[in-house]
């Protein structure tokens, strides 16, 4: 039986069949991987391009936590409603129906985090902002996006590359003979590549 099976596979049709099966498996795998990389569906298709690009609202207005602590925060309906209750479009636009409903029912808008970091990484926004990084360095230019998408794959190598290159740049840009300054630069470098900086 096994023999006849192998023989059947040797026929032209059999070879085509093998090819089809192989392609099906491959495309299935590709589709599965693509699913995990998709930007998730948000409760409202929030147009960053209008709010940031046209209206020039600073990022920190809606995400103020970035200045103070670990998490920038996603705005609650209170913040949306603060402006939107004064706008006519709120009543007319079908896209804003979820917001109006949420305000009426006092339910939250459950935004889905996109720039997702696993919870064994303790990322704090504050020192990054304090170090002079702009939001778009990591988050991309949101003034050109509607619904937010991450501009890059976030993994440890990405984090570490930046930490390494920044500390190297700092050392190169501040050539010094002062041992104290050199030591503090070295310490910064050690700190920024230490596992305990992010993992605990």
């Amino acid at each position: 039986m096994i023999k006849s099976f192998f023989n059947a596979l040797n026929q032209p049709l059999g070879r085509v069949g093998v090819l089809i099966v192989f392609l099906a498996l491959l495309s299935g795998a590709v589709w599965g991987i693509a699913q995990t990389q998709k930007t998730p569906q948000q409760p409202i298709d929030f147009p960053h391009n209008i709010h940031v690009g046209v209206l020039k609202i600073p990022c920190l207005y809606c995400h103020p936590g970035a200045l103070r602590g670990p998490s920038p925060g996603l705005p609650t309906i209170t913040k949306c409603w603060g402006c939107h209750q004064q706008l006519d479009i709120t009543k007319t636009s079908p896209k804003l129906v979820p917001l109006v409903q949420a305000v009426q029912n006092n339910t939250p808008l459950q935004w889905v985090p996109v720039m997702w970091i696993p919870d064994f990484v303790h990322f704090v926004h504050r020192p990054h902002i304090a170090a002079g990084l702009n939001c778009e360095t990591c988050h991309g230019d949101v003034s050109k996006m509607t619904v937010y998408q991450t501009p890059q794959v976030i993994n440890m190598g990405w984090c570490l590359n930046c930490h390494r290159s920044k500390t190297e740049d700092n050392a190169q840009n501040n050539p010094t003979n002062d041992p104290a300054v050199a030591a503090s630069l070295a310490e910064e470098r050690i700190k920024l590549t230490d596992c305990s900086t992010c993992h605990y």
């Binding site: 103020p64 670990p70 998490s71 925060g73 996603l74 609650t76 309906i77 209170t78 949420a102 339910t107």
Partner: peptide
């Protein structure tokens, strides 16, 4: 749904 003014996420 209504975040108190003094509360920040993550703090």
């Amino acid at each position: 749904t209504k975040m108190p003014e003094y509360t920040y996420n993550g703090l």
